[in-house]
Design a binder for these strands. Structure first.
Length: 347
DNA sequence: AAATCGGGGGT
DNA sequence: ACCCCAGATTT
């Protein structure tokens, strides 16, 4: 029965697999560096978004040695817009460990991979299966959904993660574990979609209990999510001689290590700070005036509403964690999207 | 176990 | 507006 599941899936995969920049052609051994880089980028990120970033990174840093030798700031700059910037910091750190402690080659056990920065349960299993073609239980969001449907698992996620993993462990074949994982993900990205799955095109209908009972859309069951509060802030657009004052954010936490505009603290409150409040947070003592409009951005766990005020500086003052940057080069600095939206109020 | 951590694309 | 996405790490 398990063999039928993987056989039906792999037969479908051999006919319908997608061509992706990081996917080795059939018969060709995958490059662990390519697999690792793509898996980090694909964490909580869609294939369509990752493609251009993956190709740019390989062009700039064709090997793990090149990536390890690059300054962290240039890695963050090229990562800008992809989100979850801890991934970029861990990517760079991991490259250093691979080069310095592992002679530039990737470990070939899940436990050793799992101990590297930025590599968790999913990514370790994916590298073992896809890059080394060895048996590993690969479980991502797609696979959770497929398994939850096939077995009508009523336990909500994330509690259901462990039982799902055990099912995948048993279904994964020893012959083509990497293709099995990628086939599952292709299936989840196509027919077995979260809403309105196309069961008539699915290769596994006879293995799927939810299809038989017709309640596919009820799976996977998920724990309720809490609502996002709204934070508000005033950002500062300070200019001197064609240069704009930016800050380098602290190396950890939200947008860690990324450039941004100075602003009042992002505080959960019903109204914007009034002038007497935000004046206390300006980076310099100048004549400020408001800019019309408001920037809206949604992070993982809160909404941010920002208004902008502007001033002409008397000089390029030294400001702690601040640096002056040519305004015409703003598009090339690697500004996170949240700040791009704020800057757009000015441009 | 719960919270933190981005941003885009589909519906 | 809400959901989801080839999740990991910290609290």
């Amino acid at each position: 029965m398990n063999k039928d599941f993987s056989k039906d899936l792999l037969d479908w995969y051999d006919r319908h697999q997608r061509t992706l920049p990081w996917r080795a052609k059939s018969g060709v051994t995958a490059d662990p560096y390519h697999v690792w880089l793509s898996e980090i980028m694909l964490q909580q990120t869609t294939v369509a978004t990752v493609k251009a970033y993956f190709e740019k990174f390989l062009r700039l840093w064709p090997s793990v040695e090149n990536l390890a030798a690059a300054p962290l700031d240039s890695v963050l700059k090229e990562w800008a817009g992809l989100g979850y910037y801890a991934r970029a910091r861990n990517l760079h750190k991991c490259a250093g460990v691979i080069v310095n402690d592992h002679n530039g080659t990737f470990p070939e056990t899940e436990a050793a991979l799992r101990s590297l920065p930025g590599i968790g349960d999913y990514t370790a299993a994916a590298i073992i299966a896809i890059a080394f073609n060895r048996h590993a239980a690969v479980v991502d969001g797609n696979i959770e959904r497929i398994i939850a449907r096939c077995y009508r698992i009523s336990t909500p996620l994330p509690t259901a993660k462990k039982p799902i993993r055990e099912v995948v462990e048993g279904l994964t074949p020893n012959t083509r574990p990497g293709d099995f994982a990628q086939a599952m993900m292709d299936l989840g990205a196509s027919h077995c979609s979260p809403k309105k799955p196309s069961c008539m095109l699915c290769p596994l209908p006879r293995h799927c209990e939810a299809h038989k009972t017709g309640d596919m859309e009820n799976y996977p069951v998920k724990a309720p999510k809490k609502e996002k509060p709204t934070r508000r802030a005033i950002s500062f657009w300070l200019v001197h001689d064609g240069h704009l004052l930016l800050e380098r954010r602290p190396p950890k936490g939200l947008l860690g290590g990324m450039p941004g505009l100075f602003s009042t603290p992002w505080v959960e409150r019903p109204d914007f700070p009034v002038k007497t409040e935000w004046l206390e947070h300006t980076p310099t003592d100048d004549y400020w005036k408001p800019v019309s409009g408001m920037a809206k951005h949604t992070f993982t766990h809160f909404h941010l509403l920002t208004q902008l005020v502007t001033a002409k500086a008397r000089a390029r003052h030294n400001v702690e964690n601040g640096f002056w940057h040519p305004i015409e080069d703003l598009a090339n600095i690697g500004l996170p999207t949240a700040y791009k939206k704020i800057a757009d109020l000015m441009l």
